[in-house]
Amino acid sequence: MVAFQICLQVWLTSSLLADGLAVSGQAILAYAFTEKDHKKAITTAILAA
C-alpha cells in the first residue's frame, strides 16, 4: 500500500507539472500569433514537442 501511495504521488506531481507546462506553452503560442511573431511561435512549438 505504501508503494502504491508513493507511485500515485509521483504520478500526480508529474501530471500537474505537465499540465502547467502545457498551459504556459499555449499562452506563449497565442501571444506570438497575435503579435504575428511567427519565429517565436515556431520556436515554442519545436521546444514543446
Rank of each mutant, 00 (worst) to 15 (best):
A32C: 02
A18Y: 05
K40D: 03
A45P: 01
A30M: 04
L16D: 07
T34Y: 02
K39E: 05
A49G: 14
T43Y: 02
A45V: 07
A41L: 01
T43G: 06
A22S: 11
K39V: 09
S15I: 14
T43A: 09
M1E: 09
C7N: 15
A41C: 01
I28F: 02
L8A: 15
L16H: 06
G20W: 07
C7G: 12
Q26D: 10
L12K: 03
A32I: 00
T44E: 05
Q26N: 13
V10H: 05
L47M: 05
L21C: 04
E35H: 01
W11H: 12
Q26V: 09
A41T: 01
H38W: 03
A49F: 03
L29A: 11
T43V: 02
F33Y: 15
T43N: 10
T43D: 11
A30C: 03
L12G: 01
M1P: 10
V2C: 07
L16T: 10
S15P: 01
A3C: 06
L47S: 02
Q26S: 11
A18H: 07
S14F: 07
A45Q: 06
L17E: 12
S14N: 10
C7M: 15
I6D: 06
Y31R: 03
L8W: 07
K39S: 06
C7K: 15
F33E: 03
M1F: 05
A45H: 04
I46D: 05
K36V: 03
L17P: 00
K36C: 02
T44Y: 00
T34H: 05
A30W: 04
T44R: 01
A41Y: 01
T43K: 09
T13S: 15
E35N: 04
W11R: 13
A18G: 09
A48S: 13
L17Q: 12
L29W: 00
K39I: 07
H38C: 02
L17T: 12
A48T: 10
G20H: 07
A45I: 07
Y31A: 06
A27Y: 13
I46K: 11
L16V: 11
W11F: 15
I46W: 01
C7F: 15
Y31C: 03
A32G: 01
S24N: 08
A45D: 02
I46L: 08
Q9T: 14
A48N: 05
I42F: 02
L47T: 02
Q9Y: 10
V10I: 13
S14W: 04
L21P: 00
L47K: 12
Y31K: 03
H38E: 04
A3D: 14
D19S: 12
L8I: 08
I6Y: 07
A3Q: 14
F33G: 00
C7D: 14
V10A: 09
F4V: 09
K39T: 08
W11A: 15
L29N: 06
C7A: 15
